[in-house]
Amino acid sequence: MTPTVTVRGLRKRYGHTAVLDGLDIAFGAGVTGLLGPNGAGKTTLLRCLATTLAPDAGELRVLGLDPATASGRTGVRRRLGYLPQDPGFYPHFTVFETLDYVAILKEMTDRRERHREVTRVLAEVGLADRARTKVRKLSGGMRQRLALAQALLDEPDLLVLDEPTVGLDPEQRLRLRALVSRLGESRTVLLSTHQTEDVAALCERVVVMDGGRILFDGTPAGLAAVAAGRVSLGDHRPGPGALFWRTADGRYRTIGDTPADAVPAEPTVEDGYLLLVGRTQEAA
């Protein structure tokens, strides 16, 4: 399968800090999750792909186009849906006006067609009955759904979603997963998240990033397998330096070297992630 997005030698630095340091990766159809701590470079990578940030160096191919050129960027933007990490709104606009404005910026010039599309995406995210509500009166979860709705306008081929599950309650997160996985059936969806459950639930591929580099690239099962043999359950508190927490049944779950009295446990995606990220942070 030909990749939708190709990244080669991508570099971006702010002052003396290299946020991305020669990144190489490609993405194809389906849902790919980017996992990593704050400052890992996820947002910078997604902004470069969403054509809102120019990289310092490196080559990008997005939907077969080069975002370094003006015509390439416009071409990408015509087929892109982007949910920024911190999407802002005009508080005095209604929900409908907010989406209508973005739809106009997405070159939907026919009024009837545009309004139909706005109504469609409102229904997708469950905000149909809020169309005439001012944005300032929306809860955080509703704003997040509004931000997602604007990304869905005009049926984009590539969806770049920076932390789409932030601010959503558990039920909304389930609905978002259903929506995103349906979108991923026919197009490329890239999402970043802090939530390992999101990745385990809906991504067919997961990329773990830290310090501007890729630590892992594979399936969620593969990420869990990273921690195989490194997760254990014991009755006693492990010694200092170990990564552990107390589970609901009062036992200690340890990631890393198995304490003497503990027994091996089935690793999860979260275990694999913590092990990877913990290792780099020790090394740092």
Binding site: R47, A50, T51, T52, R73, T74, R77, R78, L80, Y82, P84, D86, P87, G88, F89, Y90, V102, I104, L105, K106, E107, A147, Q150, V160
Partner: peptide
Amino acid sequence: IDPAHETYAATPMAGAPL
């Protein structure tokens, strides 16, 4: 200035047209 700038920057009207 514009709280929605990042959202609009990824649309075809971004930059000079807007």
